[in-house]
Design a protein around this nucleic acid. Structure first.
Length: 479
RNA sequence: GGAGAGGUGGCAGAGCGGUUGAAUGCGCCGGAUUCGAAAUCCGGUAUACACCUCGGUGUAUCGGGGGUUCGAAUCCCCCCCUCUCCGCCA
């Protein structure tokens, strides 16, 4: 019997090493009652075993009573009077044994059903424990810088003004002066945190996305995909965004009408990409699967009220090129692809000439599904606390996030592979998965605009994306 | 939005109350034949969980969950999913 309809963490491991999960919960600064889960699981398992032995007995009995009843029924047809009553009594007697068993089994069944909802809800909430080499910490403030990179001539010890010889404008100011984004009209159409990309702004947005997408396909060997952004609950749960992130997703109420199912707008292309092979048994020879998509992402940003309200940083809708890798269940392999996927981003940012740094996220910043996460932050000269003169001093802003999930997602998605290839007799094993941003726009436009701005107020188009901008080399203010 | 059909193993497709975990075909694996291959023939070929003397044993699974029955893939109820036709429409 399948004990666990919704799949979650490894039940065997939970039983054998509950401390592993307790540590994980503590390190992630979450609160999930592991002891309760283990107790419920044990109780449920006991009921299960009792039930199974009773059922074995029942099955054995049924094999005997079947023919016996058939025989008695045959005699009953011919019998009359007292003999008839005797046979009927005998039939009842034969039936009594299995009937008694059935009652016991049903009582156990009722008990199991009582335990299940709480147990399953709990199991779904247990997060993936962080890897041992992930530093402990409460949140993003405890993330650890691994490395940073700046283009030729960029000195991290100097301010933008010292580096470049003029005071930078913020991306907001540039968007307005260059006519790249119309915020008031975006808000008019769609509410807070909305925007309209206009003219060269829209063109740059598309150029960056297309550039990033083509790179992944042409240089890095990823399969290009277009995936649904309106998905079922099962896809959200399977990818690990539910239950914890439920309040971040847009539910489409209308989808419930006419007997329709719940549908949600995805906050990342990862959901659609990972959903592709849900409930499938893949051929080991086909792994790793490397997919890239570009999709519109929808985020409610619940709980972020008042944070990053201005500009293109924190918005409800954006477009993102996303990469995922589905590989064999092997830690070394998982780590290798993680590095590789981060490398693709670093190379892309170098090609774009954007100063950035890599951060090892601490345990408290990981989120439920990650065993490990590396963030990439780009330098944004127009960000950061206002200095005494009221101008920002510059700061890093997160632009990418590379997650390593082991089998957490694939277990929930029921995505496995057969060792030794399809048709073979090899064991089925749950895949491992990873994902990473390639480019999310318009957020990535912030460092591009702010870093490529010139003293005269124009913005140089990064050479890497020029061919996607009709060949123009700069965005200039309208005369 | 209206009306109808249907969900069985990797796939196709039987079975519609009693050794049916499930015919048959395809695919796949092993073997025979062959110089080798094709063709042909023979054998094998689901998953999950639990126990285990690692050889096996038990339980469950024919979309999911209940029910009827001594016994359910087969009968009844609820839910989920898919498809077809009409309407509307990028």
């Amino acid at each position: 019997m399948c004990l666990y309809t919704p799949r979650m963490i490894d039940p065997k491991r939970l039983r054998e090493d509950p401390d592993h999960y307790k540590r994980g919960v503590a390190r992630k600064r979450m609160s999930v009652d592991i002891d309760r889960a283990v107790a419920l699981d044990a109780e449920r398992r006991g009921v299960q075993q009792e039930q199974e032995s009773l059922k074995a007995e029942q099955n054995k009995l049924a094999k005997q009573t079947g023919p016996k009843i058939g025989q008695l029924m045959g005699r009953l047809k011919k019998a009359e009077g007292d003999e008839r009553a005797a046979i009927e009594a005998e039939i009842e007697q034969v039936k009594a044994g299995p009937a008694a068993l059935k009652e016991q089994i049903q009582a156990l069944e009722a008990k199991a059903q009582e335990l299940s909802p709480e147990l399953e809800a709990l199991l779904l909430e247990i997060p993936q424990p962080p890897d041992n080499d992930v530093p402990d910490g409460d949140g993003s403030e405890h993330n650890v810088e691994i490395s940073r990179w700046g283009p030729e001539g960029w000195d991290w010890a100097q301010t933008f003004e010292q580096n470049r010889g003029f005071a930078p404008k913020t991306h907001l100011e540039l968007c307005e002066s260059l006519g790249l984004v119309d915020f008031p009209r975006g808000v008019k159409v769609a509410g807070t945190r909305s925007y309209v990309l206009t003219g060269a702004g829209m063109r740059l947005h598309q150029a960056v996305l297309r550039y990033a997408f083509d790179r992944m396909v042409d240089q890095n060997g990823f399969s290009p995909m277009s995936v649904p952004v309106i998905v079922r609950e099962s896809a959200m749960q399977g990818t690990g965004f539910f239950p914890h992130g439920r309040d971040q997703a847009y539910l489409i109420e209308e989808s419930k009408r006419g007997g329709g199912h719940d549908a949600y707008l995805t906050g990342t292309g990862e959901v659609g990409l990972m959903g592709i092979h849900q409930d499938e048994i893949l051929d080991e020879a086909d792994l790793p699967l490397k997919y890239v998509t570009v999709s519109t992402c929808f985020r409610r940003e619940a709980g972020a009220a008042g944070r990053d309200t201005a500009g293109l940083y924190r918005i409800h809708q954006f477009d993102k090129v996303e990469q995922v890798v589905i590989c064999r269940a092997d830690e070394a392999e998982s780590r290798r692809y993680h590095q590789e996927m981060i490398g693709f981003v670093v190379d892309l940012l170098k090609d774009l000439g954007l100063p950035h740094r890599l951060l090892q996220c601490c345990s408290g910043d990981l989120g439920p599904k990650n065993a490990d996460m590396i963030d990439v932050e780009c330098w944004m000269p127009g960000r950061g606390d206002d200095s005494p003169d009221g101008r920002p001093v510059g700061d890093f802003g997160e632009t990418h996030s590379a997650s390593r999930l082991y089998d957490f997602q694939c277990r929930r998605l029921n995505m496995r592979y057969r060792e030794g290839g399809a048709g073979g007799k090899g064991a089925t094993t749950i895949c491992h998965s990873l994902n990473n941003t390639v480019a999310a726009s318009p957020r990535i436009l912030i460092p591009i605009l702010e870093m490529y701005q010139n003293a005269d107020g124009s913005v140089t188009v990064p050479p890497a994306v020029r061919s996607y901008m009709g060949g123009i080399d700069a965005i200039k203010p309208a005369e």
